[in-house]
Design a binder for these strands. Structure first.
Length: 580
RNA sequence: GCGGCUGUAGCUCAGCGGAUUAGAGCAUCGGUCUACGGAACCGAGGGUCGGGGGUUCGAAUCCCUCCAGCCGCACCA
């Protein structure tokens, strides 16, 4: 607000919507105009249909009243189409003014929200001393995209990486650590061979009774806080976190070691969860376990299904730590929104946790609490994504393979770059391919992981969008570095120019729709559509060879397009390189 | 059995607060252009939107039902 240079452009959509709203209000306060972009006009409002039905009047009649009441002077022309749709065509003067404003707005019309919320996003959640595999890909990529979008939207984000760093198998892991020695373990873990470490421990546990006995004793020592055992446990945890950080670096994910708040963090709060549930009278003992029975959940036999808070062996289940974490996020972190980016198999469990939290009064209505559900990653055979040997695929090998593939593609088409620059570019392309493929599909759907398709430079892919951006930047390299956003007049005489311009004005709406629905794919769709508008423009409208005001105008359109693509991709966690 | 998710062109996916010939990418076919990066542009063919019913002037979109697939359904998280 205090920064006068930050031009807060009222979005085109919002301008149209609010003017229509005033007109609709004359008939019924708050009636939704239902405005959307359209192929018939630039925008179409079809809220008249629903309103007419409620008022018991003919749609046509209502449409005429709205048209008479609406003030769209110098903004758009309206015409009634069909039974009562309002088709809006934006006026040239308004387009020109909007584009001029955008030219000077670093946020491209995307004003930060008036009221910042504190949003807690739980995502990634790998397990200590276990490999990160494809199953963690979606949580990590989607969670990080949402975190970036919330931040850019003006909210405060607290990322929580709910790492699995506790449980009975740590007895076995620590004993194995002792067998191979600190340094041996460190070297195995640091090169990222976590699967090997875990497998070796498991094999001994299953085949060696003495080892099994030591492991059980070790669990007890760990739970009772034995200092040496805790030291060993820390070795495992720290090595793993270092490894995860390397994976996040490869993926360009914003999670840091500070965001890791594992299950162990809640250990001393679990007893309180049980005690407090008991005090409220929700706790029921069933088959030796302490449970809460939220309404509406049944087991196979049609009997009430419990959320087991404390197991019959007195140990705490993950329900307990999830409840403790939820309380922490509401009471201590003061979250306004709690998001859990967790896969579909956990739907019932989290629903039960949320239900119990509400019953206990730990989750007030003002707090939005939601699981950001996502589907599975499938192989090209439409079965769960596995390696040829039938094993789960390591996340790092997935990324590495994509980088190699990007390298090959760069070589094939010949690049000016070499050495580190070339490697960095290959990484950027690989990440774009993987992330965009994941983000551009509606997240609840399973999707098919097909590296060839997602790294292709043609079609609806990350690299295609990067390429569109790189071509744009190339224009400016050739134009000489004297160009800067000036006062171009946007006449938009060519159809392709006008289509591109309308696309550019759509960013705020696309962004907030996407964020509001927690659906990054909507922003992807917008960016791809914009890129297509651009390539059509690029083909039809020469930029550098045009002259005078027209050249200025087209350069300004290119500048806006490049910035919009870069911003949009960036907010999804995808780089937009200057050249490819 | 109960609950959830999914079923849209050959393939991969959008659309699902109801709207006029159901969209895109890939693949196929046909054009354009000595192309500011052709990793391009323009166009064509291809779908009874899983089946059936209902609500409606109008449904891929809402409701019911059936079919198919995936997932979950008490002490591993």
């Amino acid at each position: 607000m205090s920064d006068a240079r930050l031009v807060l452009v009222t979005s085109t959509y919002e301008t149209l919507r609010s003017r229509l709203q005033s007109a609709f209000d004359t008939l019924e306060v708050g009636a939704d105009p239902v405005l959307r972009t359209s192929e018939r006009g630039d925008y179409q409002a079809n809220g008249v249909m629903a309103l007419a039905k409620r008022l018991g009047r003919s749609p046509r009649e209502v449409a005429e009243i709205v048209v008479d009441a609406v003030d769209l002077t110098d903004v758009a022309t309206v015409e009634i189409a069909g039974p009562g749709f309002l088709n809006l065509t934006v006026q040239p003067v308004f387009l020109d003014a909007q584009l001029r404003n955008l030219s000077h707005d670093p946020r491209l019309g995307l004003a930060p929200v008036a009221e910042a919320l504190r949003v807690i996003i739980d995502y990634s959640a790998p397990n200590v001393a276990k490999e990160m595999h494809v199953g963690h890909l979606r949580s990590t990529v989607i969670g990080d995209a949402l975190a970036r979008m919330y931040r850019f939207g003006g909210h405060q984000v607290i990322a929580r990486n709910h790492v699995g760093d506790w449980g009975t198998n740590f007895g076995m892991l620590i004993e194995h650590l002792l067998d191979v020695g600190d340094e041996g373990a460190a070297s195995t873990l640091s090169i990222g061979d976590l699967d090997e470490f875990y497998r070796a421990a498991r094999v001994k546990f299953d085949s060696d009774d003495a080892f099994k006995g030591r492991s059980r004793t070790r669990v007890v020592a760990l739970q009772s806080g034995d200092p040496e055992t805790l030291r060993l446990w820390h070795v495992l945890v720290n090595q793993s976190i270092a490894y995860f950080s390397e994976v996040y670096r490869k993926l360009d994910v914003t999670l840091t070691a500070q965001d890791v708040v594992g299950e162990s963090y809640y250990n001393d709060k679990l007893a309180d969860v049980v005690r407090d549930l008991d005090a409220i009278g929700l706790l029921v003992e069933s088959e030796g376990a302490l449970c809460v029975f939220p309404e509406g959940f049944q087991n196979r036999e049609g009997e009430p299904l419990p959320l087991i808070v404390q197991k019959s062996d007195d140990g705490f289940g993950y329900a307990a730590s999830d409840l403790a974490a939820l309380r922490d996020r509401v009471d201590i972190l003061k979250g306004d929104e709690l998001l859990y980016v967790v896969g579909a198999p956990q739907v019932q469990h989290l629903e039960m946790v949320f239900a119990v939290a509400r019953m206990a009064g730990w989750l007030p209505d003002r707090v939005r609490c939601e699981q950001v559900v996502f589907g599975n990653v499938l192989g090209t055979d439409h079965k769960m994504f596995k390696s040829r040997a039938g094993e789960t695929v390591k996340l790092v090998s997935l990324v590495d393979e994509a980088v190699e593939r990007a390298f090959v593609i760069l070589d094939e088409r010949g690049t000016d770059l070499d050495g580190d620059a070339k490697y960095l570019l290959a990484e950027q392309i690989a990440r774009a391919a993987i992330k965009y493929a994941d983000l551009s599909t509606e997240r609840q759907h399973d999707y098919v992981f097909d590296l060839d398709r997602m790294i292709a430079f043609e079609g609806d892919t990350g690299p295609y969008l990067q390429y569109a951006h790189a071509r744009l930047r190339s224009i400016f390299r050739r134009s000489g570095d004297e160009w800067q956003a000036g006062n171009a007049h946007f006449a938009l005489e060519a159809t392709a120019e006008r289509n591109l311009a309308l696309g550019l004005l759509g960013l705020p709406e696309a962004f907030f729709t996407s964020l509001g629905a927690l659906q990054p794919h909507r922003l992807c769709t917008y960016l791809f559509d914009l890129a297509q508008r651009f390539t059509s423009f690029y083909d039809a409208c020469p930029v550098l060879s045009s002259e005078g005001a027209l050249r200025e105008e087209r350069l300004a359109l290119c500048d806006l397009t490049a910035r919009t693509l870069k911003l949009g991709l960036g907010v999804l966690g995808i780089d937009a390189p200057e050249q490819m």
